[in-house]
Each structure stands twice: as C-alpha cells, then as structure tokens.
Simulated assay, not measured.
Amino acid sequence: MSAQPDPSDSAFLSPSSSLPGESPDPHPLARYGWDAGRDAEFAPHAAKGLVPGRVTRVDRGLCDVLVPAADEAGTVAVRADTSLVTPRDPMRIVCTGDWAAVDPAGEQPIVRARLPRRTAFVRSGSSKRSDAQVLAANVDHAVIAVSLAVELDLARVERFLALAWESGAQPLVALTKSDLVPDAAGVAHLVADTEASAPGVLVLPVSATTGDGIDALAAAVGTGTTVLLGQSGAGKSTLANALVGEDVQRVQATRDTDAKGRHTTTTRTMLPLPGGGVLIDTPGLRGVGLFDADTGVAQVFAEIESLAEECRFHDCGHGVEPGCAVRDAVENGTLAQRRLESFRKLQRENQWIAARTDARLRAEIRRDWKQKQATGRHMMERKRGKHM
C-alpha cells in the first residue's frame, strides 16, 4: 500500500503555490495533464481546502490518486476512499484517468468530487445489457493493439475504432507482433487492409521483440494521455513495457493451441512515459459492445456516409430501395461488401442499445422497420408485374 502523507506537514500543495512577484512553477500534475482549464474548474474545490489529484487505479470503494507533494515538482500517490462519489449511474463512477478533488484530512484521504470529463471511452456492459461502462477518462489517444500472430479481424478493428472515435480521443492502430509475419510484403499487405478499414487513422506495424515501430509509436503518443486497448493476447502489456522502457507490467505467453492470450493486466493502471505523457493499460477485452456510438460508427465508415448522400432517399437503408448509391458502389466494386455488412451490423447493434434505454425510440425503430418492409414488398410486386 502506498504511504499516506501527513496533511499537517504540508505534504499537499494548493493548485498554484508561488511567491509574490515570481513566475509560477509548472503545476506538479502538469505532466499528467493538468492545465489552466483544470485550474479554473478546481477553484471552487480549492476554496474548500481540497487538493487536486489524478486517479491512476480503481478498486472497489478505493482508488490510487496522484496528488501534489511537498516538493513543488513532485507528486505522491495516496489511497483514497471513493464511497462518497459512487452513484448508481455507472457512467458517473470514478475510473482511471479521472481528475478528483481530494480531502486530505483524517486517517485516509477521501475523494469529495470528480471534475468534468473531457473524453470518456465507454462500452456497453457485459451480457448484452443496456448499461454502460467507462473504461478510461480524459484520454487524448486510443491505441488499439491488434496481434498479427492470428488472422486479422477487420470487423473487430472497426468496432474498436467506433468506440475510440465516439470517446473524443484520436485513435491509432498498432499491429503488434509484426516479427511473426514471414516477410515485409506480408506486413505491408496487412497494413494496407487495415488502413482501408480505418480512414483517417494512423496504422503502425510494431514488434516489441525486435523494437521495430516502437519509436514511431512512442512519438505518436508522446503527449497527453493514451489508453491501450485490445483483446487478451494482443501484446498490450509487452507493448506497454516497451513504451515505458522497463518491465512495469507482467506478461504471459499466448497458448500454443490457439494463440489466444491469458489475462495479464487485471486492472486499469496509469504509467508515466519517458518522453512525456502517460499511458493507461487496460485488461484484455473479451467484448466491446457499442454504447450510443452513432458518431463513431459514421467516422469509421466515412466513405459509406459520403456515398449515402447520393442516394435517392435521404433515409435509404441501402437494401432494396431504388437509386441507392451505396449498393451501386458495392456492385461496381468501389465499396467492399464486407464493409457494408460490418456497417450494417454496428448500426443495428447501436440502435438496439439505444432502444433498450429509450422506449420511444424503440417504437420509432419498429415503425420505420415495418414501413421499409412494406416498401420492399411493394417494389418486389412492381418488379414481378413488369416481368408478367
């Protein structure tokens, strides 16, 4: 357990502590993302004697928080009670990456409030429930780790990208274990396939074993907060160790039988990066359900959204409707059928989640579906009439 400083010996600092007439020193939490905007947000809490902190790890009812230390350039890790800010709404529960107002008085520090989130990586809860889970907050970059030791699953990449875009963070795809691909041409082909499914996203092949691509990845995430995401066995912990420059995360080998990984990281943990910024490593995700990700899905399938503007009907479902530019693109080979199927799947899933939480929207979807069925039947009947 981390040592807890005694508030009486000035172990904690106020957000801005400098002598009159001197230029203020950088805030002790600046390297973890603290800025002038956070200063303004925190002012009401500072007036109550609370101190700022960034949550680096969360357990049941407790969290590790970095707060300013007696050394003006330093921080100290404390274990804080979060029971006062644990609402029923899972979207509001304190998570790794949150900024908190911490009360240092008493035997154990207490989190009194959570500052507003600028970004949040959210997925739907397990077992296809309609609740949400925040995986990380206040994230600038989302690195999606995809192992090249197994067959490349582009649909899963698209799913991760939709969640990343929706979070407000800038996604990046790291194709890990590139050293296991027999030749450079094979790696280039896999990169090209991924880029086609990730418009506007940097795709980097990397190998923690050989070091290839690590410097480029470190440069891309050298500022701000980065969250590392992916399935078990994608090599996230190994990649985290390579970026940090030391073995800070335990790693395990994948199973020989199916190349699947074992869960090594079991909690979300924040790690400082040597070149600046911080990294949040997350446990391997078995499921990545969408949650209110309309914007994210549209961003991932930008070319389909662009084609849809040319459809005859503004609410075209890209099925049996006449004058569908999207279906025409599939037929002439300018749009892959797989991309359209993936787009439809993610759209349906996102609508299903939304309908679970909004009865009115569910009724609208049902009416829209019935109308499209009727239109489809009418078009088929007209087509049959022409051939009679």
Rank of each mutant, 00 (worst) to 15 (best):
A100F: 08
R57C: 10
R129D: 15
I353C: 03
R356H: 05
E309H: 02
G319K: 15
R54Q: 06
R384V: 15
G323C: 08
P90C: 09
F160G: 02
T96Q: 07
G287K: 11
L29G: 02
A188G: 05
E22I: 02
E166W: 03
K48C: 08
P26I: 11
L239V: 03
Q347P: 05
G33A: 05
I110K: 10
E151Q: 14
L180A: 08
K128D: 15
V221M: 13
L229I: 00
E310S: 14
A80W: 03
E364W: 12
G235T: 04
T257Q: 14
A302R: 05
T357N: 15
L163M: 15
S197I: 00
R54L: 10
E303F: 03
T357L: 12
V67Y: 06
H141A: 10
S127C: 06
C95G: 05
D6P: 08
T257K: 09
A164H: 01
Y32S: 09
V85F: 09
D39Y: 04
R54E: 11
R382E: 15
P87E: 06
G333F: 11
A192W: 07
S127L: 09
P182L: 10
D258P: 06
S14G: 12
W165S: 04
V278M: 04
V111T: 04
F291P: 02
T257A: 10
R114I: 15
V65C: 04
T225N: 06
G61S: 14
R117H: 05
A192C: 08
R117W: 03
E321K: 09
T265R: 06
L202V: 14
L217C: 11
A46V: 08
Q373S: 05
P205Q: 09
L152Y: 10
R268Q: 11
